[in-house]
Structure formats: C-alpha cells, structure tokens
Nucleic acid binder design. Structure first.
Lengths: 331, 331
DNA sequence: CAACATATTTACATCGATGTAATGGCGTGG
DNA sequence: CCACGCCATTACATCGATGTAAATATGTTG
C-alpha cells in the first residue's frame, strides 16, 4: 500500500486521518492507491495503537422480546449517527453472561457497554472494572456508582392502575408482579399499583399478584388461565409487559372471557404488535428513542473522556405515556 | 502481567493457549496472576498476529421484524456454541449498507458475514472481495458463486395456496406479491401461488397481487383495506409474512370482515405473535434453527479453511412446514 | 560420562497503524 | 549569506499477542 503510493506508511496514515500538512499531490496519490488496492484500515492495528475500537456493546436479556429488539434498533441508529458500531448480545437473563458483559466479555474489543441487567447483584457492580464505561438500562435499584437510564416505573404503573380504576375496575390482578425480592422493575411497578389502590381506598389482595418465570407470551397466557380458576375472578389485568398482556388476552379469549367486555387489560412497552392486536392493547409507552439517545450519549461521554470516570454517576429518566386503546374500552 | 507472574510474555501466551509444555508450577503462577490482575487478552493484539477476530457479522434488514430477531437469536446461540461472537447489523434494506457488509464494513474486524440481502444486485456479488467469507440468507436468485441458505419458497407458497383452495377459497389475494422485477422471495412465492392456481384450474387475476413498500404490520393493514374497496372482494389472503398477515387481519376486523368466517388468512415465518393472535394465524414455518445452524456452519467452514474459498459454492435448503391455525378455520 | 532426547522457557521479530521527534526543503528577514 | 521558522515527510518505537527458533534445563541411554 505505502509502496504502491510511493510514500511511507505514516503518510498514508496522515492522509486517512486528515492531517493538515499533507501536500495536495501526495494526498491525491495516496487516495488513488487506496481505491486501486481496495485498502481499508485494519481495526486491530488501529486499536492496538489508539486503544479504541469504535464499537460499543448493547447487552439485553432477549432479542425476541420485542421491547428489546425495538430498543436495539434505536440504539443502533443513534450509535450509527455518532460513528460507532454496535455489538449486540443477549444474556437470557443469566448472571454469568451479564457479568461477562460488565467486564467487556472475555476480551477487550469494546469501548463501552450498555447493559440491561436482570440477574446482576449489587456486589457485581461494585467490583467491576471501572476502566470500562458502562450504562445500565432499566432499573437501578442499588445506589451504584454507574450511569443509568430508565423510566419512572412507579409512576407509570400508578397511572396505568389509575386508568383501570377510572374504568370502574375493582379487582385488578398484576401479571408479572413481585412483592418481595430484589428491587427490580417488577417490584417498582407493583409498588405503583399498590399506591394507586391505596389512593383509591381499595384493599390490597396479595393473591392478585401473579409472578411469572419470564416475560413471554405463554407466561402471560398461563398466568391469566390460573387467575380464571379463582373463585372470584379479576375484572382487570395489569400486565408488566406487552407480551404478557397479549398472551393473557389470548388465554381469556380461549376461556370465553371478553376483553374489554368482562376484563380490562393494560400492558407495558408499547411494542408494535399491541397496536394491531384484536383488541388493540392499552399500554404504557416508554420513549424508546429517548432512552437510546440518552444511553448512547452517556456512554460516549465516558468513552471520550476516560478521566471523567471520576465524575458523579449520571441518572436519566426518559418520559413515558399511557396509550389508551381498545383493551380498556378506549378508542 | 508477565512481570507479575515472573515469566515472559510468551509464557503467559502459552498458558492461555493451552500449550502443552508448560510446567504445572508456572501454569499455576500465571493463572493466579491472571486472576489477581483481572487480565484479559487483548483482541486487537491477537488479531493483529493471528488475522482472526472470532467475530462474525449477521446482517439483516430490520431487527424489529420478528422473523429476523428470532433468527438472530438462533444464530447467536449457534455461534456461541462454536466459540464465536456475533456482531449484529441492520441495513434497512439499503443497498449501500448491504454492500458495506459484503466488504466487511469500513474496517476489517469480522471473520465472515451472514447477510440477508434485499437490495443487492448480481453485480455486487461478482465484484466482492472473495477473501471475506460470506453466506447469503433468503433468496439467491442469481447464480452467484456465494454460499447460500434458504427455503423452497415456491413449494412453500404453493402448499399454502393449496391449503386455502382446500378450504374452499376461490379468490385469493397475495399481499406483498410481485409479478415482475428481481427474482426475490416475493417473486418466488407469487410463482408458487400461481402454480397452485393453475393446478386447480383456476384463472389468475393480476389485480389480486398487491405489492407493498415493506413487510410491516401497517403495510398489511393498508393492503387489506385497499382490497376491500374492490367491487369483488377476495375470500382469502396469502400474506408473504406474518406481520403483513396480522396487520391485514386487523384491517379486516376494523371493516367488520370476519376471519376466518368471511376471509381466510395465511402468513409466512411463524413468528411468535402468530400463535397468540386472535384468531391465531395459519402460517408457513421455516425451520429457523436449522437455517441458523446451516449458515453458521457454512460460514465457519470457509473461515477455518480459507484455501477452500475455491470450493464450489454450497447451497442448503432448510425445511419448512405449514402450521394450520384458526385464521383458515383450523384448530 | 558423553551424546542425545525431551521438556520448558525465552529472545526476537512480526502483524498494522500511529504518536513522537527528527529530517530536509524552502522562504523570509536581517 | 545565515538564522530561523514553517511545511511536508519520514524513521523509529510502540501498542499486545504469538510464531519461530534458539536457549536452557532435565533426563536417558549406551
């Protein structure tokens, strides 16, 4: 390459990096050589020297959970805009994989990591290698010293519950809810639900909080089916994501229970399917584009200024809104 | 690192790569040093030397099309099993991005690429740099010299159409179909449809073939709505993917048309949503796990034996089956 | 004990890009 | 004509891991 253009390797490098003191003549010669030989910089060489790869990792539990694939799309768009490449990973919610991500996987080929954790323990965050910039998505229940982007889950859940109450609902079940254990998204959303009940002066029935194994369609279906076996059926379901909600609607349908006629249903995430289901689904829509933007921006701040690793951890709360659709009797 | 363990850098390397002639003693010492210092190999250094990164790219049009995110999951699982890391990219169906993928992006940090093309031209494949192993997914309409994994689209579509015919349908529309232009998936599936009609002795009405901009929910809804404006309505919809089908079902519902009562609907891909929609969707299910397995396996063959780049291009056809559900009056 | 085989470890060069500092060319002011 | 400064280019070292080959240690055989 350098020989072909008749210059030194360094001059090629200078041309590629737009160093100003290069004569028009050599610049042209080098560019021509680049085209002629189809030359492309070798990332490995560059990183070895610069210490940066231009890649960031996005690590989520599962790609076939629509919320995450939709989010991934936004993150990739945003990263692209900022000249970064995204390495996408899934953890299946396994702690070992989340840990691996926190530590930059087996090797170091990533400038930073955006991680949506499920199983991580507080301790894992304390002991992580602070040289690798990390942004957490979702809940950040522990006062960790790590940047974080999320939504106000308690409030969102309270609003969703209030909407159900306003629709005359009195026995609202929570599918995917949690009363104890780690202060995760499920816990917070359940809290919001409890707050709304309390504000309305309604009793809280722990039996209406149904935990699930995963946030998938069939878990929602199973949970809904189990609720129907109770002597006193619920008249509304607050489902902690849209897959659960849609699975639940399906199960209700199979049992001849009408939505919204007999039971109202609300979900979280506003995945695309929810707009098109029959009935369409009322859901809490987090601003995914904003989440992606904030996460990438926070991460690149740390990447570009590693010295800032001492800066106080940042916390961003993205907006959300309740989208009322047919499943709660809406338009 | 090396100093900490009191050995040379090469010995560390030997331990990491399980070189056999290392004394138990030094091996232990090095391992301890690794733990103590949290050492991890630097991929850049390794690749610079070895020329391999252990990463492959999976490049698809859009991640929020469930078929692709489900496929991605399988590819990642399979790659993981074989010690590879997957770099996931989306092209939005833009030719420039597909080209960039073919050429290993701006830089070379990928050992190979699995590409699901939409806009690529035959010429692009002819002129690609053959040093980068590539496996194409989906259709491979041109006799390219590139490995390929797909399903038998013509047959699958014919079977789906036959199923509709067996259900007494006589005016079957094709949403997403194509009569002319590149020999893509749409063309092939339309051909299968035509074959089935012909075999049944039914006339072919080009007006029933409705092209779409993209394979998204709203495109299906729009297409279905336009079909309902025709004087003579179709009594079945063959939708070339599940998103189109589900969007179409929604549109029919909004127009008071019952599925399967008035119109039968079939989709392609068997995404998870299709099992849970109301009505559940009859669909052609490609064996995604098998597609992923074949693609990764073909790719790694080339990666591991670059000399084999002269081997004849391979072509794998993954199995598919028709899953009959409620939208065509099934169980 | 010499000669040789085997095991273990290391020195050195190398992959490609680039930061640092030095080189050589040229113009300007004194 | 010299000193100095600016510009364009390059020599060299370096990032980290590893292949090659050589050095060293240890053991074995005749």
């Amino acid at each position: 390459m350098a020989e072909y253009a008749g210059v030194s390797a360094k001059t090629v490098s200078n041309v590629i990096n737009d160093y100003e003191h290069v004569s028009e003549q050599t610049r042209a010669a080098v560019k021509e050589a680049i085209d002629a030989l189809g030359y492309r910089v070798n990332i490995a060489g560059r990183q070895l020297r610069k210490g940066r790869t231009g890649m960031i990792a996005l690590v989520v539990p599962e790609l076939d959970v629509a919320y995450f694939s939709e989010l991934a799309k936004h993150v990739m768009t945003e990263a692209d805009r900022r000249g970064m490449t995204v390495l996408l990973h899934q953890t299946n919610g396994e702690r070992t994989r989340e840990l691996a991500a926190l530590h930059g996987f087996d090797a170091q080929f990533t400038d930073g990591v955006i991680l949506s954790p499920l199983a991580l323990l507080p301790h894992d965050l304390e002991t992580r290698d602070r040289r690798l910039p990390v942004v957490l998505l979702g809940e950040r229940p522990w006062a960790s010293r790590t940047d974080h982007v999320g939504v106000d889950n308690v409030r969102a859940s309270r609003e969703a519950t209030e909407h159900l109450l306003a629709g005359g609902r009195r026995r609202i079940a929570v599918i995917g809810g949690a009363l104890r254990g780690r202060q995760g998204t499920d816990r917070l959303r359940t809290q919001g639900y409890q707050q709304a009940l309390q504000a309305a002066g309604l009793p809280f029935d722990a039996g209406l909080v149904v935990p699930v194994d995963a946030y998938h369609w069939q878990d929602g279906a199973r949970a809904a089916a189990s609720l129907l076996e109770r002597p006193e059926r619920p008249d509304a379901l607050l489902c902690l994501n849209d897959h659960l909600a849609l699975g639940a609607v399906r199960a209700l349908h199979e049992h001849g229970v009408r939505v919204p006629g007999d039971v109202h249903v609300v979900g979280f995430d506003d995945i695309e399917a929810s707009r098109f289901m029959i009935p369409s689904l009322t859901t809490v829509a987090p601003d995914k584009a904003e989440i992606a933007r904030a996460a990438v921006s926070l991460l690149l701040q740390r990447v570009e200024d590693p010295a800032a690793s001492v800066h106080a951890p940042q916390d961003r709360t993205a907006p959300h809104r309740l989208i009322v659709r047919e499943s709660t009797g809406g338009a």
